[in-house]
């Protein structure tokens, strides 16, 4: 099978004031893949995602979606092009109900029927959310909130889903559930860029992985190879 790159990040540099946060990050994600980006705190994982989705500007380099340059495009337009980010820490609209949150996720859809279809799909995927349909999102458990965050992002019908630390702060049983969900999305054909601190889990479900350190990609390989890599084992898997 000849992989077709759907998202290409080409040597992007991001600055926060004088701080050079990303020093030339390049990644390629092929259609239908799960690619994981692992790294320590402050290595630039979230910044990379934000640069892709246009939430922070990149001073140099290019992001291409299906070969088209999207760096410089306003973030609200990028959502419409098919890249949706699930923000770190879930970030519900805490005072709105589950259904209203989903509806918000479909903001870029212009037809009411599409919105309803998206909500139905989310409920089908997470029956738990359907039970909690009229409940206020802020009162959901952490696991349910993560379901809602993913469900909300899927509303816009993304081709590429950017997941930022979806397992953060969840109980182990829920971590398993979240990773199952990601595998399901993958099986349904969604392309996923997964940022994780839980490198063990991430490398288990991913096809390929990148390791980022202080704003630079230091390693990239098939996930299976990374699992066996000495440096990765020491630094991120805690195996001596």
């Amino acid at each position: 099978m000849n992989p077709t790159p759907i998202l290409e990040v080409d040597d992007i540099h991001v600055y926060y004031g004088n701080i050079h946060a990303l020093k030339g990050v390049s990644l390629t994600i092929n259609k239908g893949e799960i690619v994981t980006l692992i790294g320590a705190n402050g290595a630039g994982k979230t910044t990379t995602l934000n640069a892709i989705s246009g939430l922070v500007p990149s001073r140099e380099g290019q992001v291409r979606l299906r070969g088209e340059t999207i760096s410089g495009v306003a973030s609200h337009l990028i959502v419409g092009r098919g890249i949706v980010q699930v923000p770190e820490g879930r970030r519900m609209f805490a005072r709105l109900t589950v259904e209203e949150n989903l509806r918000m996720g479909g903001y870029t859809l212009t037809r009411a029927a599409d919105v309803q279809a998206g909500i139905d799909r989310a409920f089908e995927m997470f029956p738990r959310l359907k039970e909690r349909r009229t409940q206020v999102a802020g009162t959901l458990s952490g696991g349910e909130q993560q379901m809602l965050a993913i469900g909300r992002a899927l509303m816009a019908g993304p081709e590429v889903l950017l997941l930022d630390e979806p397992s953060m702060g969840l109980a182990p049983v829920l971590v398993d559930f979240v990773f199952d969900t990601i595998s399901r999305l993958h099986a349904e054909g969604t392309t996923i860029l997964l940022v994780e601190q839980n490198a063990r889990m991430a490398l288990q479900i991913a096809d390929r992985g990148y390791v980022i350190e202080t704003g630079m990609i230091v390693l990239s390989d098939l996930a299976a190879n990374l699992r066996e890599n000495d440096t990765v084992r020491k630094a991120y898997l805690g195996i001596v």
Binding site: S53, L55, A74, S75, H76, L77, I78, V79, G80, V84, Q85, P87, R91, F93, A94, R95, L96, R103, M104, G105, Y107, T108, R152, A153, A156
Partner: peptide, 24 residues
């Protein structure tokens, strides 16, 4: 309306509003 929902989204969380495709 759609605009009303965009306002509510901004009120609730400006960053997420931007991430779901609202022109702030």
């Amino acid at each position: 309306s759609r605009l009303g929902r965009a306002w509510i989204a901004i009120r609730e969380d400006e960053d997420v509003a931007e991430a779901i495709g609202i022109n702030l």
